[in-house]
């Protein structure tokens, strides 16, 4: 009880304003100064690092999706005359071993990297949420069976599993998103299940059941909204993980075939030419990938502050 000295809830009516006592039902959103979302926004923006992360992420998205519209390069044809050129006026970041422009390559590589990250984050989170919520809410034997399955798949080292699957299927971007999601949803499911179990015994859920709410109503009205916070945080971190996993798969040469590319594959090329001194083929891609993963992780930390603050305030 170290909080004995902390002040009361700050938002109660202050005693000096009895004359303003309104007698009508507040008629607009303005009357609700501390909605959950507002509170979340305030907490998030207080975390300066997370804000920077958000800006970096937006810049990287612009770079990858808007960049090619501004900076035109031919990313399909190989051009052996131009291979391995150092940075110059015509090729701002030099060229690849196939003679393609490196900067342009980074742009389209960023596109697939971001697409895979977001795709996996969304897919895995959605599936994990549904799976975990069902297991947690059902309880009993259903829960045991569902979660043992998750335990089992979680103990297969994920990269081995992904490489195995990638070796079986024909790899394209969509397939890769599916494959990565297949390993990524597991930890989300475990998390959501745990949260659901604890929510299920919370008094407000008991109260809801107490006036006859059906399971469907309870899940829709209480469980899901209260899960949202943790799930969003987890989903954000999933995006970072997926980008790293995608890079690893691409590094192992199991990514989509050229002329498609991604940052992992570009780094891989750079590593192969490391001893030839073609630094421009390695470091820009390396910096970009670290930047995006860092940005997403930092955003995730910021969001988790938001969720924790909400839990504290309850």
């Amino acid at each position: 009880m170290t909080t004995q000295g902390s002040p009361q809830m700050p938002t109660q009516g202050t005693p000096q304003a009895p004359t303003q006592l309104p007698t009508v039902v507040a008629d607009s959103e303005v009357a609700t100064p501390t909605s959950v979302w507002r509170l979340a926004m305030i907490t998030f923006t207080e975390n300066r690092l997370a804000l920077i992360g958000l800006i970096v992420l937006v810049l990287l998205i612009l770079f990858s999706f808007v960049g090619p519209l501004v900076y035109h390069t031919n990313q399909v044809a190989t051009n052996l005359i131009n291979e391995n050129l150092p940075p110059s006026g015509s090729h701002l970041l030099g060229t690849t071993p196939e003679g393609r422009d490196e900067l342009g390559r980074l742009m389209i590589g960023g596109r697939s990297t971001i697409e895979v990250g977001l795709g996996v984050g969304l897919l895995a989170t959605t599936f994990g949420l549904v799976y975990g919520a069902i297991a947690g809410f059902a309880g009993g034997i259903v829960d045991v069976v569902m979660m043992r399955f998750v335990d089992a798949l979680l103990s297969i080292p994920y990269l081995f599993f992904v490489v195995l699957l990638a070796a079986i299927v024909q790899v394209n971007l969509l397939m890769l998103i599916l494959v990565l999601s297949m390993v990524s949803w597991l930890s989300t499911a475990r998390l959501v299940r745990g949260e659901t179990l604890s929510l299920r015994t919370r008094d407000f859920v008991v109260a809801s059941q107490g006036f006859g709410a059906r399971a469907r109503q309870v899940i829709a009205r209480h469980i899901t909204p209260n899960l949202l916070g943790v799930v969003v945080v987890n989903g954000t971190l999933k995006v970072a993980d997926a980008i790293l996993a995608f890079a690893s798969v691409a590094y192992l040469g199991l990514g989509p075939a050229p002329p498609a590319t991604n940052w992992g594959e570009l780094i891989s090329t750079g590593i192969n030419n490391l001893f030839d001194g073609y630094w421009w083929q390695l470091w820009p891609a390396g910096v970009l990938i670290v930047a995006i993963v860092l940005a997403v992780n930092v955003i995730g930390d910021g969001l988790s502050d938001v969720v924790e603050v909400r839990l504290q305030k309850r």
Binding site: Y251, I267, L274, V293
Partner: peptide
């Protein structure tokens, strides 16, 4: 630590190669 954490392991490996070998 956050930077290490956000780095693909092969990139970390290359950094080490550059420093300790190259």
């Amino acid at each position: 630590m956050l930077i290490f954490y956000s780095m693909p392991s092969f990139l970390l490996g290359v950094l080490l190669i550059v420093v300790f070998n190259l």
